[in-house]
Every structure is written in C-alpha cells, then in structure tokens.
Design a binder for these strands. Structure first.
Lengths: 153, 153
DNA sequence: GCTTAATTGCAACTCGTTTGCAACATCGGC
DNA sequence: GCCGATGTTGCAAACGAGTTGCAATTAAGC
C-alpha cells in the first residue's frame, strides 16, 4: 500500500503511455512503454541512439535492440504520438507531441543544447509568408547560436 | 582567332571560375572548373550525385570520380564559394553564392521542384526574433508545399 | 489456455559520405 | 621549357544512420 501511494505520479505516466498505445491500436510492449516514458520524463529531443542507450540503461527493464527503437519511433511518428526534428547534423531526433505541439528550436553551436521556442513566428504571422502559388505550405525553421553558458564560461 | 571571338561568352564564365579558384588559393583543375561552370549555368541546387552525373556527361571533359566531387564541394563550401542546402531528405544540395546570397527555398512535396524565395523574412525583421539570450543567431528556414504544376495536372 | 496477428532480435544490407594511400597534375622558381 | 614541392585525384575500403528479411516470440481476443 505504501508503495502504491509513493509511486503514484510515476504510475500515472505509465498509464498515460499505455492509454496512448491502446488508443493508437498498438500492442503495449515493454520497449514501447520505455520509449514513451523516457520522452515524457526527460527533456529532449533525442536521437534514436540516445533513446536506445537510455532505455537500455534504465532499470525499467526496457532493454531492446536498436532496430526496435527505430521501428517504434516510425510507428509513433506515423500516428503523431511524437514529432521528428532534423537539425541537419546527420541524424534525426524525436520529442513528444502531436500536431498541436508545433514549435521550433534554438540549438547551441558549441554544446548542442536544445531549447524550445514557445511561439511559431510563421503562424503568428510575424513572418510574412511569401506568395508563391504553392498550396498546403508547411515549413521547417530552426535557429542556431551560442548559448549563455557557452559564451559566459 | 575566329574561335576566340565565337567562344567569348562561354570563355568568360570559365575565366570567372578560374579567378574564383585562384583568389581562393586553390589549384585550377578540370573537375573544379566543371563543377563551378555547372552551378553557374544551370538552376540548382544539386546533390553531389547530380553534379557528378552532369559533370561526367558534359563533353567539357570534366569527368571525374564522385569522391572528387565531394572533396571539391567541401573545399568550396569552406571558402564560401557555394552554399549547402539541406531539405531533410537524406542528402545535401549545393548552389552558387556566398554569405551575401542568403535566401530560402520552397520545395514541392510531389515533384521535388525547388524555387528560391527572393527575400528572407527573418532578416526583414518581419519575424520577431525570440529573446533567448543566445548570441550570434543564424537560422534555417525551408517551406514545403504542392506546386501549381502538380495540383493543376 | 489457444490461436492469430503483431512485434521483436539478429544479421545482412543499402545509401550517402569519408578516409588512406599511392599516382598524378598544377604552379612557382629556375 | 623543365623540375621539384605541394595540392589534388582515383580507387578501394571503411563508415554511420537507417532499413529489410526472416524466424522466434509475445500480446490480445476468443
């Protein structure tokens, strides 16, 4: 009983992940729960490899093959459970959130730290969309710079 | 003499490319001239592979190994003779132009056609740069959509 | 519990890109 | 114009991220 109460907030996360999987029509497996838990609890985004390392190291016994990570991430992305980020450094990253979580990042060129920017200047209309005759226009926007920690120290 | 006059405009391009190489402190070689000529005359941007095919097929005798293309492009980019574009499709593209040629693209999701956008809305300040404490901030911005040709036909 | 379809692990593979090394071509000096 | 130092090239082999085929396993519905 004591244990049950103590673990409450963590349990809650697990249930959310399970629900998300069931709602999506996916089987609930250990690797999938581990990936969703990781993305829900640590600030990302993470590369497939980073996810693999963390999931494998976590005592949550989510250990699995890297291929499984790739396959789960692909499924999750297809169902909009997670978003893919591409910072142009040769690998892809993922973070929690569906289409409603649209936002952009600023990445430190030195320490690679990633911050999220709350507002999207394109949807804000603070960016004037060029008139191109294209339809169904989406965009990718990322900022790069030197973060305070790096230029201070 | 007749030949000299006849080939004038084309010769001129070659001279420009040669000058660019000499000014950059690079040796003037056939592959390098062929790459610069291609980028100057055809509307890009092009992947290394596309450049290789075109350069090899051109009777200008610029035939060379794909590795050479990669190495030339890396040098050129380091010297800001060309710009790298990344549309997130697993390969990189290059086009002519230094830092003064900063601009963005809109890419058709169907036919992959790439148009250049004349103005940069970010430098226009029509985008309100988020105050993040980061310094030396640059950005990457690309648009994706369906081009008129694709949704018409 | 038992069946079936989904999921996983392993190994082998693809594709864009990079690297080691020996052969070669360019450029500056004679 | 020839020659040597240095930069550049070709080839083959390696690389890393991501994918695929297939047999073994496991979750979900009955």
């Amino acid at each position: 009983m004591a244990t049950k109460h103590h673990a409450h907030s963590h349990k809650q996360e697990k249930v959310d992940a399970e629900d998300a999987l069931r709602n999506a029509g996916l089987k609930v497996t250990k690797p999938r729960l581990a990936i969703l838990d990781l993305l829900a609890s640590e600030h990302g985004p993470f590369t497939p490899d980073e996810i693999h390392v963390r999931v494998t190291q976590s005592k949550a016994a989510g250990a699995c093959d890297l291929v499984t990570i790739y396959r789960c991430l692909a499924k999750f992305e297809g169902l909009s459970l997670i978003n893919r980020c591409d910072f142009g450094d040769g690998t892809v990253r993922y973070e929690l959130g569906g289409k409603d979580h649209h936002h952009h990042h600023i990445i430190c060129r030195l320490c690679k730290r990633v911050d999220s920017l709350p507002d999207c200047p394109v949807e804000d209309k603070s960016i004037k969309m060029p008139k191109t005759g294209f339809r169904d226009v989406s965009h990718r926007l990322e900022f790069f710079g030197i973060c305070p920690d790096c230029y201070a120290g």
